[in-house]
Design a protein around this nucleic acid. Sequence first.
DNA 1: CTAGGTGCAAATAATTTGCAGAGGC
DNA 2: GCCTCTGCAAATTATTTGCACCTAG
Lengths: 334, 334
Amino acid sequence: MASSALPDLDQLRPAGTKRSGKRDQIVNTFLKQEGHLSADDLVDIIKREDQRISRATVYRTLQWMVTAGIARKVDFGEGRFRFEHSYRHPRHFHLICKTCNRSFEFLSSDIESLVEEIAAARGFTARQSVVQIYGECESCQAGRAPQSEGAGNSELLFARDAMRIAIATERSGREFYTRAARLVKNVRGRHVFEKLATEEIDHLERLEARYKTLLERDPELEARPTFLFFKGAANGLFAEGAELLKKPGMDEAEALRIGIRCERNSHRFFKRYGEKFEDSEGKQIFLEFAEEEREHLDLLIREYRALITRTHGRRRARTAKRPAAKARPRRQSA
Amino acid sequence: MASSALPDLDQLRPAGTKRSGKRDQIVNTFLKQEGHLSADDLVDIIKREDQRISRATVYRTLQWMVTAGIARKVDFGEGRFRFEHSYRHPRHFHLICKTCNRSFEFLSSDIESLVEEIAAARGFTARQSVVQIYGECESCQAGRAPQSEGAGNSELLFARDAMRIAIATERSGREFYTRAARLVKNVRGRHVFEKLATEEIDHLERLEARYKTLLERDPELEARPTFLFFKGAANGLFAEGAELLKKPGMDEAEALRIGIRCERNSHRFFKRYGEKFEDSEGKQIFLEFAEEEREHLDLLIREYRALITRTHGRRRARTAKRPAAKARPRRQSA
DNA sequence: CTAGGTGCAAATAATTTGCAGAGGC
DNA sequence: GCCTCTGCAAATTATTTGCACCTAG
């Protein structure tokens, strides 16, 4: 399993802290490990390499790594802490097997949004959230020996899943705009949709190329289990919109409204996950796309406004069949 | 704030364990407290009552309570455990304020289902899950003094919210069946829907009566913040179905299919939350309703089958416009 | 030369345990 | 009388700290 490239310690080193061979050694040894080590695990490993490094130093270095952003302290309720890489490792949640004591990582965009909503509903400012599922893993249930894979390299898995969702989204975006262009009669509107379709196709190509290079980094990458769960996006964020376009009685205004909703979601997706990437190339692609999707969004909104003024003077387009595009996720009130 | 009635210790006492005044005292004192106590908090409180009870006994009793099912050990990542009532307290998640160190409880059916899906997708048998949102609570942000309410009595809040969702569900069920009855031309079909409408109305009355008695137990109950978050059910589990009935071209078969889907969800809702109630009365009502919804479900399925045989011999009804009623939540595959 | 960094041993903090005596059934 | 409960003190476990010494910048 390809392990992440080592970070440049000089760059990460917090201000006012000095280089030290011992510390470097501890950090590098830590980064070479996989999974979630307890302080003691690390001490054992270090002691094997160099008898003369003391327990206290390992503890101090672990603390240093946390403040340097190289490691994260995680608590699996064992009465002691464990540490995981955070360099090139997005924040994630855990499945914890009580039988073999291994832990598996995942991310769920759906859970994250629910958490945000709940915090907001309670007037709470969430700074961090922990989701842990305790139980028994697949291989323990089958009585099999724990497969090598403990925590794996979630940087790659994250990139893979984010990329897949992005590809599905661009694919459905292409579908949506192509269909919308076919639907719209007036020239101006058609051109707008055609232009957007072209851009989505361009995005798509870049994403697919990038996905391919990703696969080269791990031959089994495609086969590994899902890391990033994101229900809505399995078929792409525009899938629902493209479906809606098939409805009878669809007109340009409605298509624009749907497009606006989809672009808004898509922009959010690229932005949110772009920020999670610690890989600079993936991050850059995502954030770039986020920006472009925002431009699409602005374009659609401008077009929508223009359309309304054009066809109905200052009045609302048709009888608003669906809530205006601004609709945000409803909060429970019952 | 009304504190739960004390449990009957004799009943809960694990086999082969003896009565002891000290233990009873510790248990009772623990149950009189609110919120999440650390072992040390409890020792302090106990010591104030009786100097001669030792720390070890408190620890031992705490352990005893956990195995007896009276208390739950929770870990807020402070490097020590806290304990909360579990008697008449459904399992829940936590919002934890890092400023005032208070914690607030909530439950999210939506998160629970996502967690189940994710565990299933990874072949993991989930036994328990922990969701903790760390951040700053409303009053700390406002710089106000922490309001009295720390953890509150979530038994009542849970009952209130479950009851509200159930009421909304029955209300939307009444709407759905009334509308369906109006829609269907043939006598047999109409009678089925009318019968179901009547039963939902009956449920509704019982739930509303029960809700009223609940409110008497705490004058401010209605004003307290949401405890149980459950997006889909804000308007009742049949709301979407009732809406669908308005669509043109709706026929009996389609109405039955929608009804089947809604009843299935409703059955699940009553069953799942019925099981979470530790209050025997609420539990009974919910489980009873779960059973009745299951009967409705069976009735609808029988009717659907009969309808198909009646109209098309052994062939499928119409061109299946939506996935057959059996559709379960889709799992991400992208 | 001076602010970190390091080792060692001692301190802390939460929790558990061994053991002898007390008490419920 | 037996088996559990209890107190006390000592042990354990994870982690931190004080202090004297060492080393990079």
